[in-house]
Design a protein around this nucleic acid. Structure first.
Ligand SMILES: Nc1ncnc2c1ncn2[C@@H]1O[C@H](COP(=O)(O)OP(=O)(O)OP(=O)(O)O)[C@@H](O)[C@H]1O
Length: 723
DNA sequence: GAGAGGGCTCTAGCG
DNA sequence: GAGCCCTCTC
């Protein structure tokens, strides 16, 4: 069979096995994803009905790619496979079955920002004092949800401290509000199916009958709820095949449990284990280097990984002066790689631990005229201007969605301020009405001024008009009419600032996104579009055909591969990020993350670290990462970047070994600002110091800038350069 | 109620 | 540095 020709023996065995539950445990680049893809194609070729296959991947993009490959191998019938992320597949099922959970099928999906906003609303309205941000409280709640601990269970059995008791009541109210808003958060998308299947035996039967073969990629990063869903859906006759590498489990902080991987044999009796040991991706040097690091972890399944690929180049570890130098060294190496090898820019990826590192890297690439693309970061659909328009669509679809309603009540400004909104909310709570309904009765809310009542009425009429149009116009017609009537594009244009220009472009891009979506789904409704939008992830937007370098976090790089990889910021406190606070198992997860970064590379790895780095508005000095020390030195060479030389315009001497001296040196620099010194400032240009007041963090300078007049600035933030 | 400006806090990774 | 909130002025 032609399909199976591209497989080695152990891969083949895994593909052909069909008798019961099985798990493929294998290291990086050993073809796990390929096996899964071909296995599905093989099933279809053998007459398996595609609509009975459920294949779960980690990102939408991975699902899309896998589907495309299967279609290529076997033809169009593969389109019927249920393929997607846990979140998207079960959101779909929840929509179909929503009424059983007393939800309406058009429920909104709240992303993290929406959820945090709701937590914040709840804290404020309940008037609970809690020494913690809404963000942290939401994180706690999300953790509880991930562990499948209900508000009731938490408050009854676990919440002992006063703070925990308060969190318990916030959690309870938060869930209640979600329900009243006809909304689910990300965690609900995994919890509600369990509720559905547990409480409605016939629904469970239906889906058990429907899915005869379940396949799961990246099984090492599934959490408790996902595991429970799989257990529920797997009837004695259901075939289940999961694939994973425990050494690549990097989402523990989101509730992922490696135990799912380690205990598969217990959970699914008579499970068969397959192992793949040949790596096809990387050179011997890369593989050995990665192996020398991951060996330091104690908790893992022993695995062998070998390759027939040649030794390749050694890794290059580059010492840089600071983050600007780091970006510069990377740009330099990129140019070198491109000109010396037959590589295109899209063969190169730059990874970082945290998104804020991308800024300096971007600057460096831009200055060197190297085109790049950032994956993730502040994602398109999470931007304010985009979310504002999406909130309108949500309200048109789901009038109970109070968070969205609040978001747009006074956007664009229509003279409905916070005071009036609070009054209406109070009214709606008292009469147990939704805020939307309250709006139609705003004339009864006597505390709201007459002029503003009229504004509310006006706004309500606008929404009513579009709710009515919703079923008469196509998605695209409706959205563009709405955007036009709101006048947001005009508004951004008139503002005419760099930010408003970006906003303008983003709204335009949203419109073309909707157009594109309508083209692919001709009968698409608002609901279809919304269902998609909330679940789009960062990597989903990755387009490898672009001729540009790819920048992304190590987390997003999972499952991908690139000929050349830069792993940046390899310093203590960046990568690993929190070594001082991490438990052993958290450090091990951090090490796995480093392992994931290294094993993305096919031919060449550059590891960079900087002696100093601006963070939180000040310079921090740190040692290079322990993970570098863990790599066997026979697999790398060391290079020096801008160390010892003066880097850029910043006047500072870099010491190789003596951090203390470096600190002194830095303080010296601050002190040496004197009345009369000439300095430059990034925004205001050249100037002369007129006055200095205070010291330390609150030290201020008054400067006469040549082009911007006199300004008073905090030294700490001004980043002044002495001339 | 809007808008400007100042002060304060937070600061990881993500579907 | 960014984002949020508060305060002050119009
Ligand atoms: N039998 C094979 N012959 C040739 N190339 C192969 C074979 N199996 C896999 N490959 C190639 O090896 C690379 C890695 O495969 P794949 O992405 O499926 O690995 P993986 O185990 O899922 O990796 P990871 O866990 O690191 O994401 C791919 O480029 C794939 O095409």
């Amino acid at each position: 069979m032609k399909l199976l020709k591209s497989l080695n023996e152990s891969q083949l065995a895994a593909v052909e096995y069909n008798s019961g539950p099985h798990i493929i445990v294998a290291g990086a680049g050993s073809g796990k994803t390929r096996v899964l893809t071909i296995k599905i194609a093989y099933l279809l070729e053998n007459g398996f009905d595609p609509s009975t296959i459920l294949a779960l991947t980690f990102t939408n993009k991975a699902a899309k790619e896998m589907k495309e490959r299967v279609i290529k191998l076997i033809g169009k019938k593969a389109e019927k496979i249920w393929m997607g992320t846990f979140h998207s597949i079960f959101a779909r099922i929840l929509r179909a079955e929503s009424t059983r959970l007393n939800y309406q099928p058009n429920f909104s999906i709240y992303d993290k920002e929406d959820s945090v906003a709701l937590v914040s609303t709840v804290i404020n309205e309940m008037n609970i004092s809690i020494d913690s941000t809404a963000n942290n409280v939401h994180h706690r709640i999300s953790n509880l949800k991930n562990q499948m601990i209900s508000p009731l269970e938490f408050s009854k059995n676990m919440a002992e401290t006063i703070i925990d008791k308060r969190i318990a009541s916030i959690y309870l109210e938060y869930n209640k509000r979600l329900f009243e808003n006809n909304a689910m958060d990300f965690d609900d998308l995994l919890l509600k199916p369990i509720e559905l299947f547990t409480n409605h035996a016939r629904v469970l039967q239906k889906y058990r009958k429907m899915f005869k073969y379940i396949l799961v990629d990246e099984y090492q990063d599934t959490n408790r709820a996902q595991y429970e869903i799989l257990k529920l859906l797997t009837a004695p006759r259901t075939k289940i095949c999961v694939v994973g590498d425990d050494a690549q489990s990097i989402y523990g902080w989101r509730g992922a449990e490696i135990r799912n991987m380690l205990e598969f044999e217990k959970d699914f009796p008579k499970a068969k284990i397959f192992r793949l040991e040949q790596n096809y991706r990387s050179t011997k040097n890369i593989l050995s280097a990665a192996d020398s690091v991951i060996k330091k972890n104690t908790e893992q399944i022993a695995k062998t990984l070998w390759t027939e690929n040649n030794d390749g180049e050694k890794l290059a570890i580059i010492k840089c002066a600071d983050e600007k130098d780091e970006a510069f060294q990377i740009a330099k190496q990129i140019k070198k790689e491109i000109s010396s090898k037959k590589l295109s820019l899209s063969d190169i990826a730059i990874f970082y631990r945290i998104n804020s590192q991308s800024r300096a890297l971007e600057d460096g690439l831009r200055k060197n005229k190297i085109p790049y693309k950032i994956i993730g970061g502040v994602e398109f659909y999470r931007r304010k201007e985009v979310k504002d328009i999406v909130a309108y669509l949500r309200i048109l679809s789901n009038q109970n969605d109070e968070e969205s309603l609040l978001r747009i009540m006074n956007f664009p400004q229509r003279g409905i301020g916070n005071t009036s909104i609070s009054k209406m909310i109070a009214f709606s709570r008292k009469l147990e009405l939704s805020l939307f309904t309250t709006m139609s009765r705003v004339f009864e809310v006597i505390e709201v001024k007459e002029r503003i009542q009229k504004n509310v009425k006006q706004f309500k009429l606008l929404l009513d008009k579009y709710i009515d149009l919703k079923d008469k116009l196509s998605l695209m017609e409706l959205t563009s009419a709405l955007v036009d009537e709101l006048g947001v594009l005009r508004m951004y244009k008139e503002e005419n600032t760099p930010e408003s220009k970006t906003r303008y472009e983003n709204v335009q891009e949203l419109l073309s996104g909707i157009q594109e979506f309508s083209k692919n789904n001709p009968k698409a409704t608002i609901e279809d579009f919304l269902a998609d939008v909330s679940l789009i992830s960062g990597v989903d937007q990755f387009d490898e055909t672009n001729n540009s370098v790819t920048l992304m976090t190590v987390h997003s790089s999972k499952g991908l591969e690139f000929p050349v990889v830069f792993v940046t910021g390899c310093e203590e406190d960046i990568f690993p990020l929190n070594p001082k606070f991490d438990s052993d198992s958290q450090t091990e997860e951090e090490r796995r993350l480093f392992y994931v970064a290294l094993t993305r590379a096919e031919k060449k790895i550059f590891i960079t670290y900087a002696r100093s780095r601006y963070r939180f508005g000040e310079v921090a000095y740190q040692n290079r990462s322990r993970f570098i020390e863990e790599i066997d030195p026979s697999f790398y060479d060391e290079l020096n970047g801008g160390i010892g030389r003066k880097s850029g315009r910043r006047k500072k001497v870099y010491y190789d070994e003596f951090y203390q001296e470096s600190f002194d040196d830095f303080d010296q620099e601050k002190r040496s600002l004197r009345v009369g010194s000439r300095v430059t400032h990034e925004l205001f240009g050249m100037g002369k110091i007129l006055q200095i007041t205070g010291s330390g963090d609150t030290q201020r300078v008054t400067i006469a800038f040549e082009e911007h007049g006199n300004k008073q600035l905090l030294v700490k933030f001004a980043n002044l350069q002495l001339i």
